[in-house]
């Protein structure tokens, strides 16, 4: 008879303890997500419909502005342009929403953190999941535009390649969650991160081909464009946005071969995992100090 529990019992107790705290945290995250989504559109007349309308209206503005400025080769290209903008827009909006909401999430919840024993991770996770909910609503807008474009322009946007959407979204989530972890923990210690990030987001928006086409510059042999090409290639959002367009319509109308999408998918997961790794590292190293700084 031993008074000390053996290794297996220790592991067992550890697993039980971890799964219990996981369940508890999952409950908290669920309640927080419900709260976030509900609060967003409280007191607005059409409520959650805004999540659908917002990307649509944005697309119409950009479409109107850029289709009058830019010269499209053909009527067909002009029709596809609306889908081009919308794809870029909802991808980038997801990351923008998730990260800007997460950034102050630890500090905002100081009331909960200083009065209860609660895992710090639940706040950035719940903000990211709320952004996923909003993203799913804006997919309704995307499906609507896909239907309209397929109806008016030759070729159809609907094909089996759409299942890749579900394969790529986890990678996008990992990327934005990793970035959110970094931002929310840095914000605890340096409140001016918020201003930096706002400015950075503007720069980031322009460096991501949301309303312009990277292909337009590809063949120019100029130092400036070589630099631009490197920068754009280093921009993770470039790969996500372009991949999303590939699977939403380029594959189905034959612009991009389907096989190519597999290697890009792997790249997206590498990006997502690197971001998550850095995020968890910084968050784990700093989270014990949060409570004394918020």
């Amino acid at each position: 008879m031993t008074t000390k529990p053996n290794v297996f019992q220790k592991i067992g107790a550890f697993v039980v303890k971890k799964s219990k705290s996981f369940k508890k945290n999952a409950n908290i995250v669920r309640e927080l997500v419900i709260k976030n989504v509900k609060i967003q559109y409280r007191n607005s007349v059409i409520g959650v419909l805004w999540t659908v309308l917002n990307p649509l209206l944005n697309m119409l503005v950009m479409y109107f502005v850029f289709s009058t400025i830019m010269d499209f080769g053909s009527k067909q290209e002009e029709d596809w342009f609306s889908l081009y903008i919308l794809c870029g827009n909802i991808m980038f909006s997801f990351v923008r929403n998730a990260t800007t909401q997460s950034l102050p999430s630890i500090v905002q919840n100081r009331g909960l953190l200083t009065k209860n024993k609660i895992s710090e991770y639940v706040f950035p996770i719940s903000k990211n999941l709320s952004a996923v909910v909003n993203f799913s609503f804006s997919m309704i807008a995307l499906i609507g535009v896909m239907a309209v474009v397929s109806f008016f322009a030759p070729g159809s946007a609907f094909s089996y390649t759409l299942i890749f959407v579900f394969l790529m979204l986890p990678a996008l989530f990992l990327f934005s969650f990793g970035l959110s972890l970094v931002l929310s923990s840095l914000y605890v210690f340096f409140r001016d991160i918020q201003h930096f990030y706002t400015v950075f987001l503007t720069l980031w928006t322009y460096l991501t081909p949301i309303f312009w086409d990277f292909g337009l510059f590809k063949n120019k042999e100029d130092m400036k464009f070589a630099i631009l090409e490197t920068v754009v290639n280093l921009n993770p959002m470039f790969h996500f946005v372009e991949y999303f367009r590939d699977i939403i319509y380029r594959c189905s109308v034959g612009f991009t071969p389907v096989l190519e999408t597999f290697s890009t998918l792997a790249l997206l997961y590498v990006i997502g995992l690197i971001s998550l790794g850095i995020g968890i590292l910084i968050f784990a190293l700093t989270r014990r100090k949060f409570i004394y700084n918020i």
Partner: peptide, 22 residues
């Protein structure tokens, strides 16, 4: 202190319950 001012009392009961581990 653990209440969210924008949420209803009912939502806060559920959130606080989850935080207390239920």
């Amino acid at each position: 202190a653990g209440f969210d001012p924008e949420s209803t009392a009912k939502e806060n009961v559920y959130l606080n319950g989850a935080i207390l581990g239920y």
